[in-house]
Design a protein around this nucleic acid. Structure first.
Lengths: 190, 190
DNA sequence: AGGGTGATGACATCTGGTGCCATCACCGTA
DNA sequence: TACGGTGATGGCACCAGATGTCATCACCCT
């Protein structure tokens, strides 16, 4: 692909995460990141739409959304909405293998320390929620049930994910997701 | 209070909403807003932390969060988590009276047209969700049930709110919220 | 060897956002 | 009446994020 030093994008992501941990998000300029990656500020903005996006995979960040949507599509056509969403969550949980946990923890610490990064994270999750709702509608689920099932499912996933990256937690994301879903069902039971 | 033209903050909010509708968020500079309000860019940033915040009430935006928290606190101590959250949602729904609907619709159209504004909106809602979860924990609800009930409740409210501001919708927000909550309970029923 | 292609560098520019100090209107007090 | 305090505003400089434009360079293909 690249004819210069390979993997410019990856180098930028790596440099950014390192610098954000060292000095914090605000104390790191885009030029700092680019320089550490052996590139220039202008090139940074060719790979990422803005400074925050470097932590969210840029366009590839939509990969996770695809995983969820595919998982949803794989559920039996006659599955209840929340059961179909549960299948999507399982697929999402599989995406975050044990090898990814250390990186996820670093990333979560940085994001958690900076409100402007949490903004972006919420948008990404909302985008997944919208995609799930759309998938549910295609399965014949009416509004507002489709949106509610999707949003609820994502809330379950978010809670599970936060537990997964919490210090000392050892259970895998699949187990945590299923546990959270069970808790939700108990809470929502009339 | 003010010894100059009164209500500088309100004038800035009004000018901003007008300009965002006329030209769009990106095509409007902070200087444009300030000038239309008879002020300067520097003064704008004394009232609002950033350009987006002008649509979210600045600090007073936390007023809504207080309404929710107060509503939650007013629920019977032995109420089930989701019932307590339902009380909070009722309080939130009361906050948006019929007179506010036209303004809410204008605002929603602008926010809906600009992803960067949606980011901010998600943060505000997440802040309410956190406050509700905290309130539930104080009522003795354990994690992750507290977070799940809070996030689920807010999903219900968000869905209801979107229907409330939809063109042609005439039901009030309380009715829509209760309807959405009933739908959620049906969806979550095993 | 030469042209095409795509990623990068260099430069200019706009705008969001902040720090700093001056200014001005009003208020209370002597 | 005079005077100083207070709080909101204006003006200015400045940094950093973000974008448009053009030049450059490495590689591939013919």
């Amino acid at each position: 692909m690249s004819r210069w030093e390979p993997n410019a994008r990856g180098r930028l992501e790596q440099a950014a995460l390192d610098l954000f941990e060292e000095r914090g998000f605000d104390q790191t300029t885009v030029e700092d990141i680019a320089t550490r990656a052996g590139l220039t500020k202008r090139t940074f903005f060719r790979h990422f739409a803005d400074k925050r996006e470097v932590l969210f995979g840029g366009d590839p960040g939509s990969a996770l959304r695809e995983v969820f949507v595919t998982g949803l599509a794989a559920a039996p056509p006659d599955a209840a909405p929340l059961d179909a969403v549960a299948a999507a969550l399982d697929a999402g949980a599989d995406f975050f293998t044990e090898e990814r946990r250390p990186f996820a923890r670093r990333r979560q610490r940085v994001v958690g320390a900076h409100p402007e990064l949490q903004e972006r994270e919420l948008v990404k999750l909302a985008s997944i929620s919208s995609a799930l709702a759309e998938g549910l509608r295609e399965r014949g689920v009416d509004e507002p049930a489709a949106s509610l099932a999707a949003e609820t499912g994502l809330a379950v996933f978010r809670v599970a994910f936060e537990r997964w990256v919490a210090p000392g937690e050892e259970r895998d994301l699949t187990a945590l997701t299923r546990d959270s879903l069970a808790t939700l069902r108990a809470v929502a039971a009339v």
